Simulated assay, not measured.
Amino acid sequence: MAKRKVHRRARKVLGEEPLALVWCGLRKDIPRPPKDVHRAAGKGRLKPGRHWLFYAGLVLAAVIIIPWFLVDKLDELLTSKRARQELLGRRADGASEPQRAHGDRHRLPEPSDDVFDGDWTLTAGRLLLRWYGQSPNLRRLLLLTDDRICLAASPGRRLSPTKADDFDIVTEFAHGEVRIHREPGQRHFFLRFSDGSWLNQGRLADNEDAERFLKAISG
């Protein structure tokens, strides 16, 4: 659960007590926008900033994983003939399924499947274009009040959701400009803006705060 200093900071930046708050983040990476759109928006960062230990970890993982990967691929080559035979057998058994599988591959993405609605000119798209320009950290603190929905961010790359006390509001909307929609039974939600765009939010940071927040938006 978020510590007192998180709530104290929230009261300070809002000027009032929040009804609910939760640290959340994008459920997937920001898709790459068209070059002209990205250039017009100032060519801002589209990925979170990483601590140097992250890159050191990647190098260490590569030293361990690449040899294992090569051995695994060699094993696949040695057993490929048997695998192809088994695959052909499964396809023969499932000959009645192709039409349904084809339909699944061409299913249009639902709001819960993607980061946003796909239109970079609308509110959600414009917000994504400056997402990491406001903070290199992927998390945002979502704050609810009686008449506002606010997103706050910490300026640092590293963040402790239960202890952060250096965040500021980077974006806010009146309740008439955005509403929060949660699909029944899901631990994520998306913001629906008045222009029809939407932004998917997940990666809820703290179980207790998350449950309280999800209960508040479902009531």
Results as ranks from 00 to 15, higher is better:
135 S>N: 05
52 W>M: 09
180 I>A: 03
33 P>M: 09
129 L>T: 05
78 L>G: 01
12 K>C: 10
214 L>E: 03
14 L>S: 00
2 A>N: 02
214 L>C: 03
22 V>P: 04
114 D>T: 15
112 S>A: 12
174 A>K: 15
104 D>G: 06
190 F>S: 04
66 I>Q: 07
205 A>K: 00
81 K>F: 04
122 L>T: 14
100 R>Q: 01
186 Q>M: 14
190 F>V: 10
205 A>C: 06
17 E>C: 05
10 A>V: 07
89 G>A: 15
122 L>D: 07
29 D>Q: 13
177 E>R: 06
109 P>A: 01
82 R>G: 14
117 D>C: 11
59 V>F: 07
34 P>H: 12
207 N>Y: 15
180 I>T: 03
132 Y>G: 07
103 G>S: 14
120 W>K: 09
94 G>T: 10
158 R>G: 11
119 D>N: 03
104 D>E: 14
98 P>G: 05
215 K>W: 08
96 S>T: 13
189 F>G: 03
156 G>S: 12
195 D>A: 06
217 I>M: 02
137 N>S: 05
107 R>L: 08
210 A>Y: 13
189 F>C: 01
71 V>Q: 08
123 T>K: 03
150 C>A: 08
31 P>W: 01
97 E>N: 06
166 D>S: 10
148 R>K: 13
194 S>V: 15
5 K>H: 12
46 L>P: 01
33 P>E: 06
218 S>L: 10
9 R>V: 06
61 A>R: 15
87 L>W: 04
23 W>R: 04
157 R>M: 10
91 R>E: 00
92 A>D: 00
58 L>Y: 05
113 D>K: 09
129 L>C: 02
58 L>S: 11
212 R>I: 12
91 R>A: 03
7 H>A: 11
166 D>R: 11
218 S>F: 09
5 K>W: 10
137 N>R: 02
101 A>R: 05
171 T>C: 09
207 N>L: 15
196 G>N: 00
127 L>E: 00
146 D>V: 12
52 W>N: 04
164 A>D: 10
54 F>A: 13
12 K>N: 09
56 A>P: 04
94 G>L: 15
56 A>N: 06
59 V>C: 10
197 S>T: 07
149 I>T: 02
12 K>R: 10
93 D>G: 04
203 R>I: 13
138 L>I: 14
93 D>C: 13
6 V>P: 01
25 G>L: 07
42 G>T: 07
177 E>G: 04
104 D>L: 14
201 Q>M: 15
132 Y>V: 09
2 A>G: 02
46 L>F: 03
122 L>S: 07
89 G>C: 13
211 E>W: 08
162 T>F: 08
35 K>F: 13
130 R>W: 05
156 G>T: 13
142 L>T: 02
74 L>Q: 13
53 L>W: 08
85 Q>Y: 04
175 H>I: 13
36 D>N: 12
2 A>H: 05
96 S>N: 11
129 L>Q: 01
200 N>G: 03
216 A>Q: 11
196 G>C: 04
169 I>D: 05
213 F>G: 00
171 T>F: 01
175 H>K: 13
218 S>N: 07
37 V>P: 02
212 R>W: 02
7 H>W: 09
154 S>Y: 02
60 L>F: 12
41 A>Y: 01
217 I>H: 01
60 L>K: 14
186 Q>W: 13
83 A>G: 08
149 I>N: 01
77 L>Q: 11
40 A>M: 09
176 G>L: 08
172 E>G: 00
128 L>Q: 01
28 K>Y: 09
111 P>S: 13
94 G>H: 08
169 I>E: 02
